[in-house]
Design a protein around this nucleic acid. Structure first.
Length: 544
RNA sequence: GCGCCCGUAGCUCAACCGGAUAGAGCAACUGCCUUCUAAGCAGUAGGUUACAGGUUCGAGUCCUGUCGGGCGUACCA
């Protein structure tokens, strides 16, 4: 429809001002329904070039729009020079039939067809259970992956982790200390060790398996491995509970084993971007506009996390992804430019890397900000949150707001917020429709009959139809901007349109043709709700 | 100090890369269930978009400065 309107306007412009280059014509959906179904501001943007007042340009364009095809019902000039279009009923019913026939596939797009996209998210090291702090990352990543799939992309979900490093050593030492305590030995708990109760649980398991046989310090790897396995098992369970399934787990260690870390250093050295100072190896980030150079290998010989990060992103590109998306918290924002510079310096197309930065969730407990620390066991886990409010509300909560805004989460109100969470508004609409469907099936026999959507002329019906038809566009928009809250907003509007319809129009008791048209209208509505909720990873219940 | 993000109704947040009268939910107030689920519908109230300038037909949105918050600015991840 947009294309059709653009052609019409371009045609009109050629008649009015043949010598003019046709500009980019933007069509937008007016905020207020009084302004029609679509509008353009071309007259305003052309006012200067044509040296005429926008209003009269608009009048001329409007006068040259062909309304005889039957898809456009009205063309008006309004305000300072907007041109508003109204769609005709037969256009709506044609499109609705299309949506009806598309069935469960309605809304799928081809924008990203044949694109291989990787979304990397969660990527928490296995040092403890996933907390509500990880929740926003996990849910955003998974939902963006889902919407990209709906836009036609071939998507892989990857979880990147590091099981070597200092963190893991401290973790192993913490487990060992608990183990020694459990078998009655004196053991000093390591400084800065992990204090959580889950450490003791892991130690208990090690004790069950190995008894008292792990006294010596040389057994530390056993504790490390037990911790990693136990914690990863929990993480996977938590993710599964949230409706998230990773396609692959990528161990940072791979990058050391296959030599890609060394290769990065060698390549950057060839480009004269590496130097040694104070026993450390530095990357000349100043030549990319930073005010300081960056250490890649510490004087201890241990690389900083930035180095494997670079190698990892090169690895992604070598695996052939058209796009590698990272989901990052605000704390990682500073490293991203370094990675991009290095990847580009190594001769790769860094445009294929993109990052989504979300702002931190501020946890509020008892009216005060609550600082979480995995080490100090000061945290609220996602499992605890889901115990309280369930997986649907948990997902919805993290998706409701734009990733770029700070999000405040009041734990004391979490449950209460759960009970009146707007997610129920959407789910209720779906359940309500299913309930009607059941009654309709008991009352009418529509088998083999085709609905005549032209019968849907009530205001509430027309509004609902228009909403339904927006789904494909909203999915494209959400996928393009990677902002799931736009889909939520749309589903809210759709649900509102449905509830209004429910209030104004009935099915039971109506003549069969109208009842049939309305029933099938609701079939499509339910499909849109289910598809939308599906993209959000939230259930669409038949009963509530 | 410097860099990035943010500041919109009492609260939590929208506003489709500059468009028309800045919108929802929660909280408050008023109506609507003998009829397909009242987890709903209809209505009232709530705003100098932190502040001050600038750019233009037009600014919550863009540029400059100020104030306030978050995160970076580590040979931590």
């Amino acid at each position: 429809m947009q294309e059709y309107l653009k052609q019409q306007i371009a045609g009109a412009l050629r008649k009015i001002a043949p010598e003019l280059d046709i500009p980019e014509i933007t069509i937008q959906k007016p905020r207020s329904p009084e302004h029609g179904d679509a509008a353009t501001n071309v007259a305003l943007t052309l006012a200067k070039a044509l040296k005429q007042n926008p209003r009269s340009i608009a009048e001329k364009i409007a006068g040259n729009i062909d309304v005889s095809t039957g898809y456009i019902k009205g063309v008006e000039v309004a305000g300072p020079g907007f041109i508003n279009f109204r769609f005709a009923g037969n256009w709506l019913s044609d499109k609705l039939s299309g949506a009806h026939q598309a069935g469960k596939e309605f809304g799928r797009g081809r924008m990203l067809e044949n694109k291989k996209i990787q979304v990397e998210f969660v990527s928490a090291n296995p040092t403890g259970p996933l907390t509500v702090g990880h929740g926003r990352n996990a849910v955003l990543g998974d939902t963006i992956a889902r919407v990209l799939q709906w836009a036609g992309a071939d998507v892989q979900r990857e979880y990147y982790f590091n099981n070597a490093g200092r963190q893991m050593r401290v973790l192993a030492e913490s487990v060992r200390a608990r183990y020694l305590q459990a078998i009655g030995q004196e053991a000093e708990f390591p400084e800065g060790g992990y204090e959580g109760a889950y450490i003791t649980d892991i130690a208990e398991k090690v004790k069950e398996q190995h008894g008292n046989s792990l006294l010596g310090e040389e057994h530390l790897p056993v504790f490390r491995q037990a911790a990693e396995e136990g914690i990863f098992e929990d993480i996977r369970k938590t993710l599964a509970r949230m409706n998230i399934a990773m396609d692959s787990f990528f161990n940072e260690n791979t990058l050391y084993e296959d030599g890609s870390i060394d290769k990065v250093i060698a390549t950057l050295r060839d480009k004269d971007l590496i130097y040694e100072e104070d026993g450390a190896t530095w990357f000349k980030t100043t030549s990319f506009g930073k005010d300081k150079d960056t250490v890649l290998i510490k004087s201890t010989g241990e690389p900083t996390y930035r180095l494997p990060d670079i190698a990892y992103h090169i690895n992604k590109l070598e695996r052939g992804f058209d796009l590698a998306l990272d989901i990052f918290g605000a704390d990682h924002i500073a490293t991203y430019p370094d990675v991009v510079s290095a990847v580009r310096a190594c001769g790769y197309d860094s445009d294929r890397i993109d990052v989504i930065v979300y702002q931190f969730v501020t946890i509020v407990k008892d009216g005060k900000p609550f600082k979480m620390s995995t080490r100090k066991a000061n945290f609220v886990t996602l499992d605890e949150l889901m115990d309280e409010v369930g997986a649907d509300v948990t997902r919805f909560f993290f998706l409701m707001r734009a990733p770029g805004t700070h999000l405040e989460f009041d734990l004391n109100e979490a449950k209460q917020a759960g009970e009146k969470n707007p997610v129920f508004y959407l789910q209720y609409a779906h359940a309500r429709i299913q309930s009607i469907m059941k009654k309709v099936r008991d009352t009418y026999d529509f088998s083999g009959k085709t609905p005549d959507f032209g019968l849907l002329v009530h205001d509430s019906e027309v509004t609902l139809v228009k909403r339904i038809l927006e789904l494909p566009e909203v999915i494209q928009l959400t996928a393009g901007q990677r902002e799931p809250h736009k889909l939520i907003q749309y589903l809210n509007e759709l649900a509102t349109a449905f509830h209004k319809f429910y209030h104004d129009c009935r099915i039971l008791g109506e003549d069969e043709p109208l009842a049939l048209a309305r029933t099938e209208l609701l079939t499509v509505t339910a499909t849109v709700l289910a598809n939308g909720l599906g993209i959000l990873g939230i259930s669409a219940p038949d009963k509530m």
